[in-house]
Design a binder for these strands. Structure first.
Lengths: 239, 239
DNA sequence: AATAATAACCTGTCATACAGGTTTTGAGGA
DNA sequence: TCCTCAAAACCTGTATGACAGGTTATTATT
């Protein structure tokens, strides 16, 4: 066994990593819930016997991952589940060409085939209405691509929310950033108005299936939707 | 003309967020790839006209998300895709009880039904061997739960890798931390040796199906595996 | 007792300093 | 000319002190 929880110093991981672990450990051991306050930087400084610089970098790192909320004058608090860090990881993968847009779409398809089925089974009436509303807004604003896109994204996020599994919401939302960067490309390849309206119709079909509570039908429409979207992206030359 | 040193523009996000964006923007605009070096802290300090403290907190934040690698003396470099941040988000959700273990398993099931099918279609011979190897090691070390668990995790990660979609790998690996915390509980409920061996047999069936290149069969076995695992967790009282 | 002023505390940012680690440079020797 | 190796230059890790401005607790005044 080569463990070194040593008294003198910790060379390898660095003081900041240690501080990050100490903070997350604190959240765990104290059973803190979102909104609960964390120790002040000064307190952490004393407890860990390091400089405020180190403690601050630790807090800031957790804040960047959206695990805690920071704001001037107030102590940091435990954060609600947020997609910030995940989005950044995905975006990083895309911009450094370690993952392709098509790969993201394959994952989205996999996940959303499930969220849409769960939504059909578990959606509340309000959720079904929100989903249908997004689809309707897509049609109404079909002259303005940017607006259609935002409603499209809201549509998919609403379905994820209606799955009543926040992990699905987390992942779907994390992908929204990628969608924002590629959506318009796909839209442009649907040259004719007819194609564009057909795509919007697809969303309405999904919303209807969810409203009817038919998971199989909802999944079918979702699959169709993704297949067409991916095809549009491939036609546009997205690797 | 040079930079716009924000006369009246963004007060709320704070200098550090701005710096983080500047760095990621740099990666994007320069088309940096993993391993490429970033500007030094001093350079960023000059470019953004802020103190090194701010720049350092920005770098450190990106490092915490594993988007960049830092080490003493060397400039920071663009990092390879890593699951660090995602794991922390999931763990945070679990420890603050914003998501349940069962919800994670539902997502895992959804994703791994797909990875296993893709693995059956796209696996190389080496990957098929690695998957089978993990299953074999599970059986051989079946007296030592901890070891079985590690091979089990390696098994699932190997399947994700064989899907040839790094996004799947990313997500599956991010869940491994949760698995490490709950696996033993599920194992204990399989009281009899017979149950435990049956579970290991399930893994071998999956490995065989992947080797045979039969996605449907592989997915069937995977579904069965997850259904039993979830049942074991529920029996053990995991909410 | 209600309210307003004040003190105490907290985070955001800056400047400076120094201890190591890493890369570059350059001088001297083969 | 080319190699070796040590000094120099550069870089990050950490500590300290300072101050502005926001937030909460305390106290004084009415």
């Amino acid at each position: 066994m080569h463990e070194q929880t040593d008294p003198p110093d910790e060379p390898s991981p660095g003081l900041v990593s240690t501080a990050i672990q100490a903070i997350t450990q604190h959240i765990r051991s104290e059973g803190l819930a979102p909104g609960d306050p964390l120790p002040s930087e000064a307190a952490m400084t004393r407890q860990l016997n390091v400089s405020r610089t180190v403690v601050r970098e630790a807090f800031r790192s957790l804040s960047a991952m959206r695990l805690i909320d920071m704001s001037a004058g107030r102590r940091a608090t435990v954060a609600k589940l947020d997609t910030g860090a995940m989005s950044m990881v995905i975006e990083h993968g895309i911009t450094t060409q370690q993952i392709s847009v098509q790969q993201v779409y394959d994952v989205r398809r996999t996940i959303e085939m499930r969220t849409v089925a769960l939504a059909a089974l578990r959606r509340t009436n309000a959720e079904a209405a929100a989903i249908a509303q997004s689809a309707r807004l897509m049609r109404e604003s079909c002259k303005n691509p940017e607006t259609v896109m935002e409603h499209d994204i809201a549509f998919h996020e609403a379905i994820a929310a209606a799955s009543h599994n926040p992990v699905f919401s987390l992942i779907v939302t994390a992908f929204s950033g990628v969608t924002r960067r590629t959506w318009v490309i796909g839209w442009r390849t649907r040259s004719s108005d007819e194609d564009q309206l057909k795509m919007i119709k697809g969303h309405e079909d999904i919303a209807d299936a969810i409203l009817k509570g038919d998971p199989r039908l909802a999944a079918e429409h979702m699959a169709e939707h993704f297949d067409k979207s991916v095809k549009a992206l491939i036609d546009a030359g997205i690797a």
